[in-house]
Design a protein around this nucleic acid. Structure first.
Lengths: 66, 66
DNA sequence: TCTTTATGTAAAGTAAGCTTTACCTAAAGG
DNA sequence: CCTTTAGGTAAAGCTTACTTTACATAAAGA
């Protein structure tokens, strides 16, 4: 699953740690998601979407084939 | 997290087992999500949205306050 | 009545999301 | 140089998503 978190952060001049705080997760979680180590939970995806004023689909891109 | 899976299934005349098959999960997973026992993963939410031709926001409703 | 179909649920186990602690590197500024 | 800041990563542990097996109930139909 690709995502635009790094760019959205940059546009708002946020560090990984600051975004983590805003989303109530650890900095490592943000880093792992940005790096594609794992996907966020659906609740976390909703939270990020709300924070950025975007839809989940705007932020995360499903690459699944099936 | 609320969701409209039961209604969407009904509109398409699908059983929980049939939807589970279409999404490659177990019937118990569909049942648990419909019953609010837990939230789907983000990939599963995307899959359901694709299947129904809707957005994730159309199907799932975030109730988080924070 | 007997069987089938759809749904609900529970228990035990595996896998994935997330936390805490901790260490490392690179860049930037004094 | 030295310190601070941002980012990358790893290990151990907890929580949540999901599986498999299994059993129960209600409705519907032969």
């Amino acid at each position: 699953m690709k995502n635009r978190l790094k760019v959205l952060r940059a546009e708002r001049d946020l560090t990984q740690a600051q975004l983590a705080d805003l989303l109530n997760v650890s900095r490592q979680t943000i880093n792992a998601i940005e790096k594609g180590k794992f996907d966020p939970s659906l609740p976390l995806a909703f939270k990020a979407a709300r924070l950025f004023g975007l839809t989940i689909e705007d932020i995360f891109e499903d690459e699944a084939v099936e």
